[in-house]
């Protein structure tokens, strides 16, 4: 077993709104190993994007990390806890973009419309120059430009030399997302966070982008944290899955185990609601009973218990189940698999 490059431990991010406290992330733990693709899946509002912003410490106020650890393993030496670093400090800024890079959700709005895309990539290269190239001559403008052209070529953008001078609104959705990937990869990060990178593009482009990410991941051995609400995408991309619901991890494990032997009732319900080729036509698609509670009206106990078909009366509504190992790689936070804990007073 390798040392994980990233270890998130009982992370809590709360939003202090005038209307009340929103526990967007409330005790999330998972690990990312070097070169591994981890999929984070969940409905909208389950806290997956906030978790990613918390890793980079770019959660916007009134949100704040209130607990937990984010341990990042540097190339040399011990792991550092990112939550202990100042969000505006130089140490953390040296990690953002250089060691942990982000591919944001909306490529359309994620580039500045008044700077050419090339310029924005060159900025990243120049900013972290001493990290991706500790020694050697200072980066010249011409060199940065030619590196950007190479990056564009490596993500499959045709006519790269012309395209780097384009503005984001002059590019198609697919090209924009490729340019974004080029920017994220520019400083050769060890971890790539892809926040629903294919939500805003059409299905054909989606397939191309996923292939590209997979190829790049194999080439460079970058670890990818892949956020999506699309279980099909997870099955294609990830080797390890984390299932989130209302700011907590319901279940996690290797992709084969989660898909073929889901343990948590939420995961089972989620998988059942995928349309299948094997059911007779005109069958109603199973849905999860009830709806996601209002962020301010979080249920007590296990957050899923009001919608859970297997909820244990008097237990699930009272106490929060901890994440416990079940199979060889699988973990679930559910009292069904933890009768001892459930029967404790």
């Amino acid at each position: 077993m390798t040392t994980p490059v990233l270890r998130v431990n009982d992370l809590r991010v709360h939003f202090f709104l005038d209307e009340g406290l929103v526990r967007a992330v409330d005790g999330v733990s998972f690990e990312v190993h070097p070169g591994q693709v981890v999929g984070i899946v969940g409905e909208s509002g389950c806290g997956k994007s906030v978790t990613m912003k918390a890793i980079l410490q770019i959660v916007e106020p009134p949100g704040r990390i209130v607990g937990g650890q984010i341990l990042f393993q540097k190339d040399s030496g011990a792991a550092i806890d990112l939550t202990r670093l100042s969000p505006k400090g130089a140490e953390l800024r040296a990690i953002r973009g250089a060691e942990i890079a982000l591919i944001p959700q909306e490529p359309m709005a994620a580039f500045s419309p008044v700077h050419s895309v090339g310029e924005q990539i060159i900025e990243a290269l120049t900013l972290h120059e001493r990290q991706w190239r500790p020694r050697g001559p200072r980066l010249s403008r011409a060199e940065a430009r030619s590196m950007t052209v190479d990056l564009f070529r490596s993500v499959g953008i045709s006519m790269p030399a012309e395209r780097i001078d384009a503005y984001s609104w002059q590019l198609s959705g697919g090209l924009r997302q490729r340019a974004m990937i080029a920017m994220a990869l520019s400083c050769r990060p060890r971890i790539l966070i892809a926040d629903e990178p294919t939500t805003a593009v059409d299905v054909t482009t989606q397939a191309q982008i996923l292939n590209l990410l997979r190829d790049l991941q194999r080439q460079h051995g970058t670890a990818i944290v892949f956020i999506t609400h699309d279980l099909g995408v997870i099955a294609q991309m990830a080797r390890y899955v984390v299932v989130m619901y209302l700011g907590r991890v319901m279940e996690q494990g290797a992709v084969e185990e989660i898909f073929h032997a889901p343990k948590h009732p939420y995961t089972r319900a989620l998988l059942k609601s995928i349309p299948s080729m094997n059911v007779p036509p005109r069958t109603l698609l199973p849905t999860i009973a009830g709806s996601i509670p209002h962020p301010l009206g979080r249920p007590r106990g296990c957050p899923f218990h009001p919608r859970c078909p297997d909820a244990i009366p008097g237990v699930c509504a009272e106490r929060v189940p901890a994440l416990r190992p079940i199979g060889s790689t699988q973990l679930a936070s559910c009292f069904l698999y933890n009768r001892d804990e459930a029967s404790e007073p």
């Binding site: 916007e60 505006k88 800024r93 040296a94 500045s112 900013l127």
Partner: peptide, 27 residues
Amino acid sequence: LNKPYVTTARAKGLSEWRLVVRYPARL
């Protein structure tokens, strides 16, 4: 300041003043 390109710039590792002056203030 709420636009996604600001998040991108922040995730890139720019310092707060530099990124504000360079991107959202300019717009």
